[in-house]
């Protein structure tokens, strides 16, 4: 549990950070809250030679409303998401999900950007970002570009982030009025990754489901967007029968690994159970 040698940098501006990454495209790693990276370094599973701490860059922090979207700086902590004056009311599923991450102490360090950028399938925010159709702002030596969360995750720890690129912000469409939401996470204990988790955003029209998106956490090498399951719910009456059908569609696309959380069969079934429960709770919230 002792990391190998590394050089530590703490740039004060984005430009400085981009320059550092340009200088160390292969052996530089961004450090945000450190709650994924540092344990991996202690296990020597990650051995970056240059650790570039983004914590000193003020421009990467903060939450603001920009038109019909929310723009959240990459190093905004989970605690800041929960405690923000407007976000919890506008997009309550963000806080609900953030509360499912680790424990309060870690949420004061862990950041949204760190959670979504390192490509760990166990992280909770990536599936939610896919569910919400968020857009990631990336900056590198070649300039800025934007990538949809739904196009970002390529494999376990493999993302669309190019060598030397930094995630600077996450842009999330504002939630439609009267939406229902839920993040259902089954875990063994506080601080654990999900055995299975489902994020649901939906709207109803005339008693039927009008829009629906479902994101799934820790059930495949990447977070999943359950498109078929969501599509089959459109136009349906929101009842147990419809939810069970969607759950079966979810079970068909997940590919969890067997681990301490349970064998493949169990985790597959739990993907369905979490989906069913998230759908039911999202609908119930509209009614409430």
């Amino acid at each position: 549990m002792i990391p190998g040698p590394f050089a530590y940098h703490r740039p004060q501006s984005l430009a400085e950070a981009v320059a550092l990454f340009a200088a160390h495209p292969e052996d530089g790693r961004a450090l945000a809250g450190g709650h994924s990276l540092i344990p991996m370094m202690k296990l020597r599973l990650a051995t970056p030679e240059h650790l570039i701490d983004l914590g000193g860059i003020a421009a990467l922090k903060g939450i603001r409303r920009e038109g019909e979207t929310w723009v959240i700086g990459a190093t905004t902590t989970q605690a800041a998401l929960i405690g923000h004056e407007a976000l919890p009311a506008g997009l309550p599923i963000i806080g609900e999900t953030a509360r499912q991450i680790a424990d309060p102490q870690i949420r004061y360090c862990g950041t949204l950007g760190g959670n979504v950028a390192n490509g760990d399938p166990g992280n909770d925010m990536p599936a939610l970002m896919m569910c919400l159709d968020a857009v990631y702002h990336l900056a590198g030596a070649k300039g800025e570009r934007r990538v949809k969360a739904r196009d970002f995750y390529l494999g376990a720890y493999v993302t669309a982030l190019a060598a030397g690129e930094i995630l600077t912000a996450i842009q999330i469409p504002a939630a439609p009025p009267g939406h229902g939401h839920a993040y259902e996470k089954l875990k063994r204990k506080i601080g654990d990754y999900a055995t299975a988790a489902a994020a649901v955003m939906l709207t109803l029209e005339a008693g039927r489901i009008a829009t629906c998106a479902i994101g799934l956490t820790n059930l495949a090498p990447t977070p999943l967007l359950a498109e078929a399951a969501a599509a089959m719910l459109i136009g349906e009456t929101p009842d147990e029968r419809a939810f069970a059908a969607a759950a079966r569609a979810v079970e068909a696309i997940v590919a969890p690994t067997a681990d301490g959380r349970g064998p493949v069969e169990y985790r597959t079934k739990m993907a369905g159970v979490m989906t069913r429960r998230a759908l039911a709770r999202a609908v119930a919230r509209i009614g409430a």
């Binding site: 424990d103 063994r188 506080i190 601080g191 654990d192 681990d259 301490g260």
Partner: peptide, 16 residues
Amino acid sequence: VKGASFLDFFLPTAVE
């Protein structure tokens, strides 16, 4: 050996 860390070895917190 599987589960020889606090990720897997069940040490309950005050919540559990």
